[in-house]
């Protein structure tokens, strides 16, 4: 990539990220190799692949070289977020005055506090942000969650009530459930039931609403209804768990397929590949088909290889 193109990419990234140019930014842009590395890592952070330890170390190395470069810092923060390193994100952002955080970083920090379960700091941050940023819907919800979890259920409920039109307009089931939980905590059971039922109208399998309703009916002595709701929640959960398990098993099979390839156990490669091929799409499917082709070749099965190759060519058309 030419230096001019790199400059353009980095400038565009900077504009998109809302970064203010700092001293190290100029130094970074003057170092073609480093600039290319930042662009690569930025693309990684923004893409679908995970940020593995090696790439994370690359980001940290750049950060050591260009401690004031906004693009590097933003890439680092994005990597922490992507790696679900909430403690790291809080350490990096939490020391800064809320007034200096832009909206994106404010949200990252708020989400990190939520993920970390640091509700007092979430509320404190949202107190400061509410004055500066106005009514950002996500921040409002995070604030409501924080309030609920520091024992300010009435405040959480009042906040959601003030924005109830937005909740309804968005058909925001999570917010409906949250309102129901605030009522439930305050033992306002009829109102809690109403909100949970409303959530279930939009999302009949909402596990939180089902579980909460089952607890309320159990408390009210209606065990049969409670157990029926609990069973519905369990069925929903079982479905979600099965989906997660299926994905985990797919990853496991693909890992074992690669191991078998390295061990030149082509029969095993075929077994893993054939068990996986219908569950993968795009590049993954093309790669798995190629494993099938190559393994069949090694096993002296040209017809099977040809069949897989035909499928691959069909995909590539």
């Amino acid at each position: 990539m030419s230096r001019i193109r790199l400059w353009a990419v980095l400038l565009l990234l900077g504009l998109l990220l809302g970064c203010q140019p700092r001293g190290d930014d100029a130094a970074l842009m003057g170092d073609a190799e480093a600039a290319a590395e930042v662009a690569r890592l930025r693309a990684l952070v923004d893409g679908a692949e995970p940020v593995n330890a090696e790439n994370f170390e690359c980001i940290q190395a750049l950060r050591r070289r260009f401690p004031q470069a906004a693009l590097v810092e933003d890439t680092y923060l994005g990597a922490l977020y992507k790696r679900s390193d909430w403690g790291g994100l809080i350490a990096a952002l939490g020391e800064q005055p809320a007034a200096k955080l832009d909206l994106k970083r404010s949200k990252w920090l708020a989400r990190a506090y939520f993920r970390q379960g640091d509700y007092p700091n979430l509320v404190s941050l949202s107190d400061q942000l509410a004055q500066r940023l106005g009514d950002d819907y996500e921040l409002l919800k995070l604030r409501a969650l924080g309030l609920l979890n520091v024992g300010r259920e009435a405040d959480a409920g009042e906040l959601l009530d003030r924005h109830w039109e937005s909740v309804q307009a968005r058909a925001d089931v999570d917010a409906m459930v949250l309102r129901g939980r605030a009522h439930h905590r305050l033992q306002q059971l009829p109102a809690a039931i109403e909100k949970f039922e409303l959530a279930l109208q939009h999302a009949p399998g909402n596990k939180v609403a089902l579980n909460a309703l089952s607890r309320i009916y159990y408390q009210q002595g209606d065990s049969a209804r409670a157990l029926a709701l609990s069973e519905r929640a369990a069925a929903t959960q079982a479905q979600a768990t099965a989906q997660s398990t299926e994905r985990l098993q797919l990853v496991n099979r693909l890992a074992k397929m690669q191991e078998a390839w390295q061990q030149e156990d082509y029969q095993a490669v075929l077994e893993y590949a054939e068990a996986s091929v219908e569950q993968v799409r795009g590049e993954n499917r093309r790669a798995v088909l190629q494993y099938i082709i190559e393994s069949n070749h090694h096993l002296g099965r040209p017809e099977a290889a040809a069949s897989a190759r035909a499928e691959l060519e069909k995909m590539q058309q």
Binding site: V251, Q258, N284, R286
Partner: peptide, 11 residues
């Protein structure tokens, strides 16, 4: 394609 698989399944 192998490389693509590695990174995609890693994702």
């Amino acid at each position: 394609q192998r490389a693509a698989l590695v990174s995609a399944f890693a994702a």
